[in-house]
Simulated scan of single mutants.
Amino acid sequence: MLGSRSELLDLGRTARLFNGAQRLGLVVTQRVCTVLGCDWPAHLCHAHHDDSWFSGGETNFDEARLLCPRHHARIHDPRFETTIHPDNQVTFHMRT
């Protein structure tokens, strides 16, 4: 997939970190942290892999989401279960 300036938006396994074109695309399309009810501005959020890079996930635009620092820490916290809803918003539930 290419951005408006023919910049790569799908990097696969060639890079772990999201590039500037990917981040800009996420800021434009997601606007805020993707956690339900969070209004943290997109330009202050972290880019997160839906499928962990360390488990074979790819650095592709459609497999990325923006999370504020608080929610980015939470999504990696094993005490919480994460649900990604059809509207691409995320909720967390404490594991029991």
Rank of each mutant, 00 (worst) to 15 (best):
A64P: 00
G37S: 05
E58H: 01
G37D: 06
F54S: 04
V35Y: 07
A42F: 12
G56V: 01
L17N: 09
R23H: 11
L66C: 12
G12K: 00
T29N: 10
G25T: 00
H85T: 04
H46N: 13
L17I: 13
F54P: 00
G25P: 07
G56W: 01
C45A: 14
N60D: 09
V27G: 00
H71I: 04
H43I: 14
T91C: 07
S6T: 10
P78L: 05
A21I: 06
Q30I: 02
D87G: 04
L24Y: 10
L26W: 05
G56C: 02
E81K: 05
L9G: 07
W53Q: 02
G57L: 00
R79W: 08
H76R: 02
H48P: 00
F80M: 11
D39C: 03
T34H: 02
A42T: 11
G25A: 15
P69W: 12
F92G: 11
N60W: 03
W53A: 00
A21P: 13
I84A: 06
G12L: 03
L2Q: 11
T34N: 06
D62P: 01
R13G: 03
R70Y: 13
D39R: 04
R79L: 15
T29C: 06
P86H: 08
E81V: 11
V90H: 01
A42K: 07
G20D: 15
T59R: 02
G37T: 02
D62A: 05
H43M: 09
W53G: 01
V32C: 12
L17S: 10
G20Q: 13
A42Y: 06
H46L: 07
T83M: 12
S4H: 12
H46A: 11
N19A: 10
T82V: 14
C38K: 05
D77W: 09
F18L: 06
F54W: 05
L8R: 13
I84R: 05
L67K: 06
G57D: 00
V28A: 12
H48A: 03
Q22K: 11
W40Y: 15
L67N: 08
A47P: 14
D10V: 03
F54H: 08
L9P: 09
S6P: 00
P41V: 08
R74L: 14
S52P: 03
R70L: 15
N88M: 07
H76W: 04
R95S: 13
H49W: 01
R65E: 03
R65W: 04
L2W: 14
W40T: 06
L8S: 11
T14N: 06
F61N: 09
C45R: 09
E63M: 01
V28L: 15
F80Y: 15
R13W: 02
R70C: 15
V27I: 15
V28G: 00
S4F: 13
H48G: 02
H48K: 02
T14C: 04
E81Q: 14
L24F: 12
D10N: 15
R74D: 08
Q30H: 04
H71V: 03
F92S: 11
P86F: 04
A64G: 15
R95A: 15
A64L: 14
E81G: 11
S4W: 10
N60L: 01
F92Q: 07
P41Y: 05
N19T: 13
M1F: 10
N88Y: 07
T91F: 06
